[in-house]
Design a binder for these strands. Structure first.
Lengths: 367, 367
DNA sequence: ATGAAAGCGCTAACAG
DNA sequence: CTGTTAGCGCTTTCAT
């Protein structure tokens, strides 16, 4: 094959003197391109481009435009997004990085993001970083190499060089679910303080005075904010704050929650309720309770945070804080699109309200 | 700005007579390109291209190659995937379409797919079709316009024009989770017959003879295969096959399962166990049982299919069939990559074995 | 209203 | 081993 030898069907027609049907065309090359449509219509490729782009379509006479559209359809023409993106520097693609898809809080977020993007002609490149920072960095590089128009990160740490890096590169960015300490990023998160307030209020209302707290990793905004909120709220509610009954787990996992609960017991201190910083930690409490032959809520009340799917089916159904995860995703995508349109949009932090869902894991303290 | 006016930093250097640092470069344009690296290194762009491509790197002298890599790093060069893909017709991107991310069976599949792809330098474009065919078609078009190297569909119907279309277009395709009736597609699914076999065997072993069946939509391969398997296996096991006790729900949902169970009860026929074609349907049975004041497993045993996360925490913990969903994803991605490398690979259907997980929802029949 | 020409950034065939 | 050249498919000035 000659270098630069083109295989445009139009040329093939000239070459072989045959009239090629679309079906045959399709067998010759993957797809008709703009040039094919143009030569079929007897116009210049740029005219076709104008017609096929809504923004410039009005530049072309209506009758010709219709004819071109007809031919394009006939040839099954689809714009090559690579070529288009290369030229325009807009890919209508955004990268979404989440730490762990199998953690039930993330699918609804992703879904909200996606549906919002889809409505605007964007598509999402999704990556599950497996919570590993190394791969996260690589993923971001991969995505920027693909010229994504923006990025949504669901796994930021409070201090996050990766986030700084993205910002520095001028790539539109929105954080979701977790945020960073600095306020130089747009983020959509949950109102942690309100959530903890509600949970503490609920427990206190039931009569609990010795409330233990199992928190999450302090490197995450959620873990930190909930911890701070607990200290603050507990003080306000006038309950005894025993430092031994406050444990911040290293991870938001069931096993971490289980271990933490055992630690609480080991202190020998009395407590009638455990406020956990998320559902998984609460679930770990369930495990520990069972191992210790204790009952929930009869012996100990337990609350969670997140309202993961199916926690209402647990034994006992978990009292927890519902976070509108889909809405988190929707808002994150909306804000990102805004930033893509206008990169100078001032950053903003959106805080969605959690709702307390009272179920069977909390009750009036027995002792 | 003149048409065609280039803003390569190298030219800028010449223009202004300044030595520009990488930092300043980055402020001038989004990113250094191959030409920038080339002029900095005093070589031709194609030489840089060769160095930066592992496959062709050996064509360049080792010392020069190293120098070029150094300069590329210094300039923070990243290959523009759009340009590269446009030229090579390989994007290292695959499209993944799933019907509903919030259905817990899909996240692990997606995760398996992604991790496998990631290992090979590919990335996934993910779309949640919301189970809507229309949007599914649009999504596929969007993805092919983006020149994806292949497609993974998790939501095929037994007869699926969309699947036919993709195949016809010559786009490498792998189905996962569900397949089509025709055997002209590569698919990675679960061994439904074995699963049903195990479930029936378990119930029969416990002493159940009147077993009701709540199946899924017959348009899906899973719904159909499990239904056929139940008929076959039940006959083999010598249990009474009462057509009234076999209901195929329209959807794999909790509400559909609930409704189906009520229908079963309305028949007035006696049964001691319900075999459900998936966990969500089984969950619906739980709901109906509660509404009817019946207990599981004391009054009725219930089994599911899928082993969704947390069904072990339900009240009662659900006896079900575990499907290695991550492995499904891993295999699907592996087979797809194979097909991308060699499109003529014969199609194959991989059937992974489910495992029976006996929990608290099944027991010896009381009556 | 349409055409001509140039180039986004990269790679591959060919020449030397 | 390296440079030259052309072009992937598209969009945009600019010119008419």
């Amino acid at each position: 094959m000659q270098p630069g030898r083109r295989h445009s069907p139009a040329e093939s027609v000239a070459l072989f003197g045959y009239s090629l049907t679309p079906m045959i065309l399709r067998m010759l090359k993957t797809r008709a391109n703009i040039k094919d449509v143009a030569s079929r219509a007897g116009v210049h490729p740029s005219t076709v481009s104008r017609v096929l782009n809504p923004a410039t379509r009005s530049m072309v006479s209506e009758s010709l435009a219709r004819e071109i559209v007809r031919i394009a359809d006939e040839l099954g023409y689809r714009r090559n997004a690579l070529a288009s993106g290369l030229r325009t520097r807009r890919t209508f693609t955004v990268g979404v990085i989440i730490p762990d898809l199998t953690n039930p809080v993330f699918p609804p977020i992703v879904r909200g993001v996606e549906h919002t993007l889809d409505g605007e002609g964007y598509i999402a490149i999704l990556a599950d970083s497996g919570s590993k920072r190394r791969s996260e960095k690589a993923l971001i590089e991969n995505m920027t190499a693909r010229q994504v128009d923006g990025l949504i990160l669901a796994a930021a740490n409070r201090k996050d060089p990766l986030v700084d890096q993205v910002i520095e590169q001028g790539i539109p960015l929105v954080l979701v679910n977790r945020t960073v300490d600095k306020h130089n990023v747009t983020a959509v998160i949950n109102d942690d303080e309100l959530g903890i307030d509600l949970a503490v209020g609920h427990l206190v209302g039931l009569g609990h005075r010795q409330i233990a707290y199992i928190g999450g990793p302090q490197r995450t905004s959620t873990g930190y904010a909930r911890y701070r909120a607990f200290l603050k709220t507990a003080k306000k509610a006038g309950i005894k704050l025993d430092r031994d009954l406050i444990i911040n787990a290293r991870e938001f996992t069931e096993t971490a929650g289980q271990a933490a609960f055992h630690e609480l017991i080991k202190t020998g201190k009395h407590f009638t309720a455990v406020l956990s910083a998320n559902d998984l930690l609460a679930l770990g409490c369930y495990d520990a309770l069972e191992e210790l032959g204790l009952r929930c809520p009869e012996d100990i009340s337990v609350t969670g945070f997140n309202d993961m799917p199916y926690v209402d089916r647990f034994a006992p159904p978990l009292t927890t804080l519902h976070i509108p995860h889909d809405e988190l995703g929707v808002q994150a995508a909306t804000l990102l699109l805004e930033r893509i349109e206008n990169p100078d949009t001032p950053t903003k932090q959106l805080r969605l309200e959690p709702r307390l869902i009272v179920r069977g894991s909390t009750a009036v303290p027995s002792a």
